[in-house]
């Protein structure tokens, strides 16, 4: 009796491990950027209330997400930047076609201590002078940046080199992604940056707009002058495109093959139709309402490819972006 029981158990075990039985069920698999995650989480939460389809969302970063996406392991990839050339090639090789859909804006905020009353508006040139690699060890006081500013020590706080925020800021300000001075307090945890600038009169840092909106009482946002006068970061200025160059669209990439599955199609349409309201709820900046119609149109037409041609671009207005014809 004991022997049969053992044999039976072993049999079930072997059965469970047979590769043929590992087929996935109807799960919509999403992975990618942690910046886009809160929006996708909110959409998935609401979507699963409306129907029994199961949705899973992972955070392996924009790059890690595209790796899985181009191997065909996920249906949708969250991305805080456009797909790059080498990722396009990987997708092409695996025969994965994708539809690029902007879903919201992500805005970076440059913050200073509330006691700082001299640098409330800064030009891109000022910021470049502070953050470019040549500033390392040289630019140590505010006076060195602008002679009109006091001779107070300048303390810098920023995200670590692995973050998409770092890539975007350096590209928009210094002109080349990942090109930055290295002698600043770096942390992957934005809350530490908030604390640093809050406790340091000469402090300056940058991070996502949502962190500033949560900490408005202890921080001051710098109005950035991109050539047309200083513009403060806020929902309206980001939405209208005047807060440049520190705001950018963020995306979801939908695999064309997955989009043929009815539940994936329903999910993406649900995503676009509810984005306006849900993006607001998670404290990101939604696209202008009419642009979501263009996004929906692009999805329903199944226009594959990217509007960026494999490289990042700074300061493209969203309406122009959606008018471009995407290419694979």
């Amino acid at each position: 009796m004991r022997k049969t029981m053992k044999g039976f158990l072993a049999g079930t075990f072997v059965l469970a491990f047979a590769p043929g039985l590992w087929a996935a069920k109807d799960v919509i698999k999403i992975d990618g950027s942690s910046t886009v995650f809160p929006i996708t989480e909110a959409v998935s939460e609401e979507f699963m209330k409306s129907e029994p389809t199961q949705v899973t969302v992972g955070i392996s970063g924009t790059g890690g997400g595209f790796k899985k996406f181009c191997r065909g392991e996920t249906d949708i990839s969250n991305a805080s930047r456009p797909i790059l050339r080498k990722e396009m090639d990987a997708c092409l090789e695996a025969g994965i076609q994708y539809i690029e859909l902007p879903v919201a804006f992500d805005a970076l905020t440059v913050v200073i201590n509330p006691k700082n009353n001299w640098a409330q508006t800064m030009t891109v040139a000022h910021l470049k002078k502070i953050w470019e690699p040549a500033a390392q060890g040289n630019i140590k006081t505010w006076k060195q940046v602008n002679p009109a500013w006091p001779d107070k020590p300048l303390k810098l706080y920023g995200p670590g080199a692995d973050s998409g925020t770092f890539d975007y800021f350096t590209e928009a300000i210094v002109g080349k992604a990942k090109s930055s001075r290295g002698d600043f307090t770096a942390s992957e945890d934005d809350n530490i940056l908030v604390q640093g600038v809050t406790n340091d009169e000469g402090g300056l840092g940058y991070f996502g707009l949502a962190y500033y909106l949560e900490n408005m009482e202890t921080l001051k946002a710098v109005a950035v002058d991109g050539g047309k006068g200083g513009v403060s970061p806020a929902m309206e200025t980001v939405k209208s495109g005047t807060y440049a160059p520190l705001s950018r669209p963020i995306f979801i990439y939908v695999s064309k093959k997955s989009a043929r599955r009815p539940e994936v199609k329903r999910y993406v349409e649900f995503y676009i139709k509810h984005a306006q309201e849900l993006v607001n709820e998670v404290k990101y900046v939604p696209l202008p309402a009419e642009e979501y119609n263009s996004v929906l149109y692009r999805f329903q037409k199944g226009q594959t490819g990217t509007a960026f041609g494999g490289k990042s671009e700074v300061g493209v207005p969203i309406s122009e972006l959606l008018n471009r014809k995407p290419k694979l």
């Binding site: 998935s44 699963m48 955070i59």
Partner: peptide, 12 residues
Amino acid sequence: LITIGALTFIAF
């Protein structure tokens, strides 16, 4: 676990 595909949002 993140390397081998642990998720962050899973509601089942």
